[in-house]
């Protein structure tokens, strides 16, 4: 079987602007959890946009499940930096939005949305409006919305960046727990080395100006991962290694 997502010599620039991504090559297998980490401006988020087909590539090829991204769009879901909920809709209706846009029947829509809300532990908040939720809860709704379409690939662009550390750790564990039930492949952009190591089985360290894939770090910690994982020596040495790598990448930029 071909890789689920494949980048081959991919280049990206916006208009006549400078090169954002320079000859990116990688192949993501089914079930991979890939963390993208690197200094600001290294094009991490741009990689997600290219997979989602939200922005055209300037060179090379991107294939998603053997297709060009535009055709694979039904297999993808995006979780943004901000929860980006529709404030005028209840939690339940927000989760239903993607289903509604893809003309799912309304009874089935409600059913699927309820299941996804249960998955993120927010069934009791179904009839709340977004403004009545905490930051962490909003992010959970955003994840439930992404899951409503049962995507094969989940693209997460620093989803927990604005949350406090406790909430972030907790949501990381939840995210992995959900993945045990729904086996999607994930691309996860983050600034946090600890988060990257905890979640992923592969870390892509990128350098900036132009964005290049500097190094890939395999994370050999066994799943399921829990709070104990964070205490393990292997986890801590990986965090130290990746931090060092990231610092050296950032130093080279200066």
């Amino acid at each position: 079987m071909p890789p689920l997502v494949e980048f081959n010599q991919v280049e990206k620039r916006y208009g006549e602007g400078p090169l954002i991504l320079d000859r990116i090559n990688f192949a993501a297998e089914r079930g991979d959890f890939i963390a993208l980490i690197g200094p600001s401006g290294c094009g991490k988020s741009t990689i997600l946009k290219l997979i989602a087909g939200l922005s055209p590539i300037s060179g090379g090829t991107v294939t998603v499940d053997g297709m060009i991204p535009d055709n694979a769009i039904e297999e993808l879901a995006f979780v943004f930096q901000e929860p980006t909920l529709l404030p005028w809709l209840t939690v339940q209706k927000n989760v239903e939005v993607p289903l509604r846009l893809r003309s799912t029947r309304s009874d089935r829509r409600a059913d699927l949305a309820a299941k996804c809300l249960q998955l993120v532990g927010l069934s009791e908040r179904a009839h709340y409006y977004p403004r009545q939720l905490s930051g962490g809860q909003k992010m959970r709704v955003s994840i439930a919305r992404a899951l409503s379409l049962s995507p094969k690939i989940l693209l997460l662009d620093e989803p927990f960046g604005a949350l406090d550390e406790m909430t972030r750790d907790h949501l990381n564990e939840e995210l992995l727990a959900i993945r045990e039930q729904k086996a999607w492949t994930a691309f996860f952009v983050t600034h946090s080395v600890a988060e990257a190591v905890f979640l992923s089985n592969r870390i892509f360290v990128l350098s900036a100006n132009p964005g290049r894939l500097h190094r890939e770090v395999p994370v050999d910690l066994p799943y399921p991962r829990t709070e104990e994982t964070r205490q393990s020596a292997r986890y801590q040495s990986l965090v130290a290694d990746v931090s060092k790598l990231l610092r050296s990448v950032e130093r080279n930029q200066l």
């Binding site: 989602a52 769009i73 995006f78 930096q81 901000e82 980006t84 939005v97 993607p98 846009l101 893809r102």
Partner: peptide, 13 residues
């Protein structure tokens, strides 16, 4: 919100 427009486009709205 630009992201919401992207979300709608990804859902083929």
């Amino acid at each position: 919100d630009r992201n919401l427009v992207d979300l709608f486009r990804m859902c083929k709205a």
